[in-house]
């Protein structure tokens, strides 16, 4: 039996990354696995699904863009305020299946959250995983999220950051992620790719991966849908016959591709 009862947690700190993105560090013992999500709520406002961007059993970190009702209310909160969380929900990344594999992780914009949680996990279980390539895409230098961590990870992994709007950058690279990937050519033998971001971006990256020799059954997509209950009751997040909340939000691309294609097809036709 599952309830809607959330637990109350205290916000430890709030860090501002860009104009509209904050990182809320919340003291919380729910320890969500990478790729799962939490239902964060504020009484009187509502709930929204967010992924933690760190893997730790003492706290969760919510990288939040100020776009919706709940997230805009979150931006009024400060360290010391309390917030309600229930979860974690979803299946997350198939951690067992990924053991012993090389990983390519790709994220765009705020889609960086579940990926960073995975990077965290890999850091903690380094010997279980092979080589790791990380590609992050942002609009411009002002939009870069978690730059402090990116610097740290640059020393440990093959990490590349691509900026799509900036014409000149010193620290980072120019262009879309698929272009950068083409340039660096990650190893593709025994490699699995984990993607999170806008669906258009994931599509082009998957095409690029295909060119490099990674087949669709080795690509995992993290999808965004409206998830209200978190356990397959409210029916909002269905893509054809799968629930994103319960069966996902991480899907193997070859499984989800025909379903997405069908939905997009009938979305276009009117």
């Amino acid at each position: 039996m599952i309830g809607y009862m959330p637990k109350k947690f205290k916000i430890k700190s709030v860090k501002k990354y860009t104009n509209d993105v904050n990182l809320f560090k919340v003291k919380c013992n729910l320890s969500p696995k990478p790729g799962t999500f939490l239902e964060v709520s504020i009484p009187g406002v509502g709930e929204c699904p967010l992924a933690s961007c760190s893997y730790d059993n003492k706290y969760v970190e919510l990288l939040t863009r100020n776009v919706g009702k709940v997230t805009s209310a979150m931006f009024n909160l400060d360290a010391g305020d309390s917030i309600q969380i229930r979860g974690p929900y979803g299946k997350g990344f198939p951690l067992e299946k990924l053991k012993g594999k090389n990983l390519i992780m790709v994220a765009g914009g705020t889609g960086i959250a579940p990926i960073t949680s995975m990077i965290n996990y890999v850091e903690k279980n380094r010997k279980n995983y092979g080589k790791v390539w990380i590609y992050f895409g942002f609009r411009n230098e002002r939009c870069i999220l978690l730059n402090d961590r990116i610097e740290k990870w640059k020393e440990k992994f093959h990490l590349h950051v691509g900026l799509t709007q900036d014409k000149e950058t010193h620290k980072y690279e120019k262009g879309f992620i698929n272009e950068i990937m083409e340039k660096h050519k990650p190893k593709t033998k025994n490699t699995v790719a984990l993607l999170c971001g806008p669906e258009g971006m994931m599509e082009t990256v998957t095409e690029e991966l295909h060119k490099l020799g990674i087949t669709n059954n080795k690509v995992y997509w993290s999808l965004e849908r409206r998830m209200e209950c978190g356990f397959g009751s409210c029916g909002r997040c269905q893509i054809q016959d799968v629930y994103v909340c319960k069966d996902g939000p991480i899907f193997r691309y070859d499984i989800i591709k025909p379903k997405l294609n069908n939905e997009n097809w009938s979305n276009k036709k009117e």
Binding site: G68, V70, R226, C237, E263, S266, N267, K269, E270
Partner: peptide
């Protein structure tokens, strides 16, 4: 199926 930011995943009546 509307998410924050204004994208509706089932946009068309079809």
């Amino acid at each position: 199926s509307l998410v924050a930011g204004g994208k509706s995943f089932r946009d068309s009546r079809t």
